[in-house]
């Protein structure tokens, strides 16, 4: 009887051996690619439009290019997010090797990197607004703040997600282990995606 039930479950396995949580996550991330792609492409088509509509600024195309061109802060932010990808994958490696201490340490480091990144982005926004580019006064500013703001929002969501994992791991030691790490892996996939989007934004918006 029990074997028959098991056979039926296997036969009707809707995931055909795939982990549906992971499949759902990858599908979600695929849809996010379209989402960010559309935003970045919109910025590409609007980046030349810098003429202020209600001008408090004297920025012209060259001025805006200089403002958004290579600068130390965005390079540091890129380095921090890249580092957070390493710490995240080391956290997953820690839980897979049943090393709870390493898992929690690297997960905490990932959250710290995320917070530093957000702080840097807030500072950058403040600086850019101070220079006269706002979300309202030119299309360049509108699309720039929209793309980077949405990315920042994703970082914030990732921080909340990873913090909940860390709190859960501290409150229930051994909850995540070599046999049960899917929650950590899904959080990691999301975090690496956020890093991947920054790879795109950093190149297309800041370097090109």
């Amino acid at each position: 009887m029990a074997q028959a039930v098991v056979r039926d479950i296997d036969k009707n396995d809707p995931g055909r051996g795939l982990d549906l949580r992971k499949l759902g996550m990858w599908t979600f991330l695929g849809s996010e690619v379209f989402f960010f792609g559309a935003l970045v492409v919109t910025h590409l088509s609007m980046r030349g439009v810098v003429a202020p509509s209600s001008s408090k600024t004297n920025l012209n195309v060259e001025g805006v290019r200089e403002l958004f061109g290579y600068n130390v802060l965005t390079s540091i932010l890129a380095f921090i997010l890249l580092t957070s990808s390493l710490t995240m994958v080391l956290a997953l490696d820690g839980v897979k090797t049943n090393n709870q201490k390493r898992f929690r340490f690297w997960l905490g480091a990932t959250i710290a990197c995320g917070l530093i990144f957000l702080g840097g982005q807030v500072y950058e926004f403040y600086h850019i607004v101070h220079e006269g580019v706002t979300i309202k006064n030119m299309m360049f500013g509108s699309t720039f703040f929209f793309v980077t703001g949405f990315h920042g929002t994703h970082v914030a969501v990732g921080i909340v997600w990873l913090t909940s994992l860390l709190v859960s791991a501290i409150r229930h030691p051994e909850r995540y282990n070599a046999g049960n790490y899917m929650a950590v892996e899904l959080g990691g996939l999301y975090w690496h995606f956020v890093d991947l989007v920054w790879v795109l934004i950093f190149t297309v918006i800041y370097l090109i």
């Binding site: 982990d19 992971k22 390493l86 994958v89 080391l90 490696d93 897979k96 090797t97 049943n98 090393n99 051994e174 282990n177 070599a178 046999g179 049960n180 790490y181 899917m182 929650a183 950590v184 892996e185």
Partner: peptide, 23 residues
């Protein structure tokens, strides 16, 4: 390998670490 269920027993064989590769 894929993660298992929420209530899986904790005595699972640890995976091989790839930390060096990641660095």
């Amino acid at each position: 390998a894929h993660g298992h269920d929420e209530h899986a027993p904790i005595e699972h064989e640890a995976h091989h670490s790839h930390a060096k590769l990641y660095v």
